[in-house]
Design a protein around this nucleic acid. Structure first.
Length: 130
DNA sequence: CAAATGACTGTGC
DNA sequence: GGCACAGCCATTT
C-alpha cells in the first residue's frame, strides 16, 4: 500500500450509486493530475471476489469501459454492474458521461488532500526525533 | 538504480 | 468521430 493507493481507494469508495468518474478525475482528486494510468494500475491489482470497492464506477474519460480484466472481473461484468445500477451501457461499452459523471463538491476535494493516512505518515516520520 | 509496463489522456490529423 | 502518437508516473523487475 501507499499514500497514492490509499487515496485512490478512498475516492472510489465515495462515488455514489448510479454514477461514474474517469481515471483522470480520480488522479486529479488524489493530487496527481496526470496519474490516470496509475489509478488503473491500482484498481487492477485490487482483484477480489467480493466487491467491497465499487471499481466498476470508474471508466475512461471518453465514457467507455476500458478494462482488460483480472482474475475476477472483465469488461462484461463491469457492464453488468453498471446496468444493475440503472446506467445505460451500449454494446460498445459506452456510457453517457454527461448524464452520469459524478463531480465531487469542493469541500469534499479539500478533505481528500490531507487524509488520515497522510497525517499518520507525517507523524511516523517525525516522532522518532523526540 | 535503470528499464519496462500499462483498467489513461490530450492533441493533431 | 476515429486513429496514431507522445507524454505520463506508480509499480514491478
Amino acid at each position: 500500500m501507499s499514500l497514492f493507493s490509499n487515496r485512490v481507494i478512498k475516492v472510489v469508495n465515495h462515488i455514489p450509486y448510479g454514477q461514474v468518474v474517469s481515471y483522470g478525475q480520480i488522479a486529479a482528486y488524489v493530487g496527481v493530475p496526470r496519474g490516470a494510468r496509475q489509478v488503473g494500475w491500482i484498481l487492477r491489482s485490487f482483484d477480489s471476489a467480493q466487491d467491497e470497492l465499487p471499481w466498476w464506477r470508474v471508466i475512461n474519460n471518453q465514457g467507455q469501459i476500458s478494462i482488460k480484466g483480472n482474475l475476477y472481473h472483465d469488461a462484461n461484468s463491469q457492464r453488468q454492474h453498471l446496468r444493475s445500477e440503472g446506467i445505460e451501457v451500449g454494446e460498445d461499452y459506452r456510457v453517457d458521461m454527461a448524464k452520469h459523471r459524478y463531480l465531487a463538491p469542493q469541500n469534499q476535494l479539500k478533505s481528500w488532500v490531507l487524509d488520515t493516512y497522510y497525517v499518520q505518515m507525517i507523524w511516523d516520520k517525525f516522532k522518532q526525533r523526540y
